[in-house]
Design a protein around this nucleic acid. Sequence first.
DNA 1: CTGTTAGCGCCTTCAC
DNA 2: GTGAAGGCGCTAACAG
Lengths: 333, 333
Amino acid sequence: MVHGQDRVRPSTRARVLEVIEALGYVPDSAAQSMVRQRKEVIGLLAVESRSPDTDVEQQGLLFIEEVLRGVEASLGEIEWSLLIALLRDDDPAGAYRRMQKISAKVDGLLIAEGIVSSEHLARVAARVPVVLVAGSPGEPHADVFGVDNRAGTRAAVGHLVERHGRTRLFEIAGPPAAPDARERRSALEEAVAAHPGATLTGSFQGWFAALSGQLAVREILARPQRERPDAIVCANDQMAIGAIRELQTAGVRVPADMAVVGFDDMHAGALLNPPLTTVRQPMRLLGERACARLLQRIAQPALPRHVERLPAELVIRESCGCGPGEAGAVRTA
Amino acid sequence: MVHGQDRVRPSTRARVLEVIEALGYVPDSAAQSMVRQRKEVIGLLAVESRSPDTDVEQQGLLFIEEVLRGVEASLGEIEWSLLIALLRDDDPAGAYRRMQKISAKVDGLLIAEGIVSSEHLARVAARVPVVLVAGSPGEPHADVFGVDNRAGTRAAVGHLVERHGRTRLFEIAGPPAAPDARERRSALEEAVAAHPGATLTGSFQGWFAALSGQLAVREILARPQRERPDAIVCANDQMAIGAIRELQTAGVRVPADMAVVGFDDMHAGALLNPPLTTVRQPMRLLGERACARLLQRIAQPALPRHVERLPAELVIRESCGCGPGEAGAVRTA
DNA sequence: CTGTTAGCGCCTTCAC
DNA sequence: GTGAAGGCGCTAACAG
């Protein structure tokens, strides 16, 4: 009928041609979701700590970029989609509302950098399955995937002390509200205690932003020369970058005068001068695993709660004192 | 009463809402979409050029991170959500299918780094409004927002030639499939032509990945000393970073022996040593504007097509030859 | 095997 | 003022 003549009513012909022309027809997903009781969408929430500086820009996404890629890749294979939302922690009520609203648009939720109150989480988890990425392992209403913060921190401290003979450590900690920050902090204390020669000469309460690294260094440099540390252990790379920048501005050589190590292994760290030694979190893998679990749980909501820590890896570059030739990665316990 | 106003005592209203909240009830968005004919979701597509290296990891997202933030922020205000998808350009048919599928889940589409064939775009645009970010201004089926590549390139070349007396330029170009790359390329040629003393001593066809910067430099270094350029103009920061790394590995001083400028102003550039001089694209603003337009068009589909270029800005740091004290930003024409 | 129909959850309208 | 009903676009079940 399309090619030659055919005895069809003009109206029918018109209708068929119309359909053909609309070749790009795709069934409306809302209607499909309705009847299938499944939206084929999962949500990824990141909570940004909107903090007392404008450095916020750098936060959040950078950290979850790899997670996002992992999740997106997993989802792409089964043709599901990813809804993403960036929440600010300076407005918990608003964040909660948005979370609720989003939960109505998805089949499951992944929460990264999850500083979400356990109470709110419970509410949301009652509606849709929730999986936390790098969240509190104690959270009863969600599966949790994270990295082994303790082993990672231990490896970094061990390297600094045993390999480079640094003994006077200084800590730049993350916000206590972040479970990861808390774990790294206590692991650091334990690791230092495990090395008789080493001491923790001080600690700065940061909030994961580069500016806190700078501030911490200013505090350090205000001390008399003799009381200064010889190595700084940072709870993330952002702060390590801020610290290094500030040290160099002040004329302190890194790593000769002061070693610095970070945590996360964000891309920018490798570009620094000196390249940053850090503990690598396998973010992409974390994203894939968390996503796989979420999908599983969507299919089978009664699954038992699951908590998993993936291994961290000490990425040795030069800010710890190693030379270019000694670079490498060390899997931690 | 929940939706519109209703004559109820405030106390009663509060009580009802409280109960609703306690029950954890949230209306299902699929059903709402159905009746309202609106999903309150827009999609953001990024096309990754999966290229002959593994450097892919660094691509895509980094570039659109700021766009994403801008869009997300705009959307958050009106409580809409953002669906994101990362397409690979090594499988155009698959990418098209995903695009179609996603178009069924959203009210409009934002395409960033849009290397989508005009034909496919037309099909999708027939279903939902489409706005291109940094896409081809000639695309007839979408509104387009981009940066003024010509003015930006002109400013960079002008600075190199007039301020630093560089005359032997070399170009590391982006993939010809990218409209931005094409514009930058032709603008570079024009700019060089506009400076009688300057010449373009060569050009390398890159693909926006750091590795292409390295390869280009190897090609340059294979030349006899006398025939080498004294400045490299890169079509993006990624490639500039690769180039600088390779130059330094080879013992060539940047900027003393070779100046390098990039394009984009991604965060990592400022962290380099020397800090990268580059042309800044206001990505976040681009995202906000594109999003605003898309929303407008969703509300009012008959709007005339709109193409807009936002001004670029030359961000002067040190890789061009300027000293730390001379850093600053110059708005371009 | 093609054609019809019920109903997914919600909002709006209309009848009472 | 409260309550019932229709229909959004689709799929699956079922009738012819």
